[in-house]
C-alpha cells in the first residue's frame, strides 16, 4: 500500500516537473526544473533497483547536463541575447503532437511487454561467467553489447570537437573558457584544496568497483571531471591549451584503448570479442582508459571553447 502510494507520488512528481520544464516561462526556470527532473528520475531508478542507471542519471543527466545548460543560459545573458519569443501556436501544437505521439508509442511498447516476463536477464545471468565481471550491467555494456559503449565514447569525442569548432579564430589553440578568478584565501579556494583528495578517491573507487558492483567509467569519470572543474573554478589549476599533446591523448585514450582491444579481438575470434580468460583485465583496461577520457572530455565540455590565447 505505502509502496504504491510512493510510486504514484513519484510518477506524478516526475510528470509535473517535466511539464514545468517544458512549459516554464523562462529558460532559467526550465533548466532548474530539468535538473530536478533528473534527480527525481534517479530516485525512481534507485527504487527500481537499477543503481547503475540511477548513478549515471544523477551524475550525467542531472549534474553534468545541468551545469552545461546553466552555463549556456548565463552565456546568453552575458551576450545580451533576449529570451526567444514564444513560438507561434502552429509550431507549438505540432511539437506537442509529435512529442505526445512518441510518448504514446513508448507507452504502447511498454504495455505490450509481458508483465511476468524476465526479459533478457536470464540469458545475461547464464552467460555472466563468460563475461569476466560480476556486475551484469557491466557485462552487457562492456562485453555482450560493447559496441554501444564504444560508439558512446566516440560520440563524446565528437561533442567536444563540436564545442571546440565554435572557437573564435583568434583563440584557436588557446586555453578553454574564461580565466577563473577566486580569492586565494577565499572559501572556494579552501574547498578546492580540501575536496580533491577525497574526490579522486571516490571517483577511482567507483570506476574500479564497476566490474563487480554498480559503478563504472561514466559515473566515476563524471566525479573526476567535477574534481578538475573545482580546481579550475577555484583558480588553483588553469586548463591547458587545447593543442597540448597530453590533453589530446587524455581525450582519445578511452576510444583508443577500446578500439585497440576490439581490433586485437578481431585477430582471435571477431571484432570486440573478449576471450573469457582475459575478459576481466581487458574490461578493466577499457574502463580505466574510458574514465580518463570521460573525465577530461566532460570537464572540457563544461569549460567551453578556447576563449583566450594562444600565448
Amino acid at each position: 500500500m505505502i509502496e504504491s502510494v510512493f510510486d504514484i507520488l513519484l510518477c506524478a512528481l516526475i510528470v509535473g516537473v517535466a511539464l514545468a520544464a517544458v512549459l516554464g516561462p523562462r529558460l532559467f526556470s526550465s533548466v532548474v526544473f530539468f535538473i530536478v527532473y533528473g534527480l527525481f528520475l534517479s530516485v525512481a531508478w534507485t527504487h527500481l533497483g537499477a543503481f547503475d542507471v540511477a548513478l549515471a542519471e544523477a551524475a550525467i543527466g542531472a549534474g553534468l547536463t545541468g551545469v552545461l545548460l546553466v552555463a549556456a543560459v548565463s552565456r546568453l545573458d552575458r551576450l545580451g541575447v533576449k529570451e526567444p519569443a514564444p513560438a507561434p501556436p502552429v509550431a507549438r501544437v505540432t511539437s506537442a503532437l509529435a512529442a505526445g505521439g512518441l510518448s504514446g508509442a513508448l507507452v504502447l511498447a511498454l504495455w505490450s511487454l509481458d508483465p511476468d516476463g524476465t526479459g533478457l536477464a536470464p540469458v545475461v545471468e547464464a552467460n555472466l561467467h563468460a563475461s569476466g565481471v560480476r556486475n551484469p550491467v557491466t557485462a552487457v555494456l562492456l562485453n555482450f553489447r560493447a559496441y554501444d559503449t564504444l560508439i558512446e565514447s566516440v560520440v563524446l569525442l565528437v561533442a567536444l570537437v563540436g564545442v571546440w569548432s565554435i572557437a573564435d579564430e583568434r583563440h584557436w589553440g588557446g586555453e578553454p573558457g574564461l580565466r577563473q578568478h577566486a580569492r586565494p584565501d577565499g572559501v572556494l579556494a579552501t574547498f578546492g584544496r580540501l575536496l580533491p583528495p577525497l574526490g579522486l578517491l571516490v571517483g577511482v573507487y567507483i570506476v574500479w568497483t564497476g566490474t563487480d558492483d554498480p559503478g563504472g567509467a561514466f559515473q566515476g569519470g563524471t566525479i573526476l571531471a567535477a574534481v578538475w572543474l573545482l580546481l579550475a573554478m577555484a583558480g588553483l589549476s588553469d586548463a591547458p591549451a587545447i593543442t597540448r599533446r597530453r590533453l589530446r591523448l587524455a581525450v582519445i585514450a578511452g576510444p583508443g584503448v577500446f578500439l585497440a582491444v576490439a581490433a586485437a579481438g578481431a585477430v582471435g575470434g571477431g571484432f570486440l570479442v573478449l576471450p573469457t580468460e582475459y575478459a576481466k583485465p581487458l574490461i578493466q583496461e577499457i574502463e580505466a582508459g574510458l574514465a580518463l577520457s570521460i573525465a577530461a572530455t566532460l570537464a572540457l565540455l563544461v569549460l567551453g571553447p578556447p576563449q583566450r590565447g594562444p600565448r
Partner: peptide, 13 residues
C-alpha cells in the same frame, strides 16, 4: 559531512 561542507561553500558563494 560532504553535504554540509558542500552546502556551506555554496551558501557562501
Amino acid at each position: 559531512i560532504l553535504a554540509i561542507v558542500g552546502s556551506a561553500i555554496a551558501a557562501q558563494i
